[in-house]
Amino acid sequence: MTLTAYLLTGLLLFSLGLITVLSRRNQIAILVGTELMMTAASLNFLAFNRFTALDPVVGQIVVLVIIGLAAAEVSIFLSILMVLYRSRHSIDVEEMRELKG
């Protein structure tokens, strides 16, 4: 496997995540999309770590931070969603347009 293959996989994962974030109306789906994008980022870090980094430890630390960050993010995101659902009985992102100018 070459670096390019890893990067292409990362790009694919990122694009899928982005499309999900931009197109889905369900907020849980959007959450899933962001997770995908973060995974793509992690994959890139690991690939560069494997092929080009002088000190192999750096990339791995970053990935560990990303995983921790993702876990924290999911917990906060889900709790916000709970509150939102309780007050609006919907998690459809298209209905949330209070900030319309």
Partner: peptide, 18 residues
């Protein structure tokens, strides 16, 4: 006129940003 751009629809903002 410009206020109309601000639809309040987050996904369109994100799309524009991308």
């Amino acid at each position: 006129l410009t206020a109309r751009l601000q639809s309040g629809w987050v996904q369109s903002y994100a799309g524009t940003a991308v």
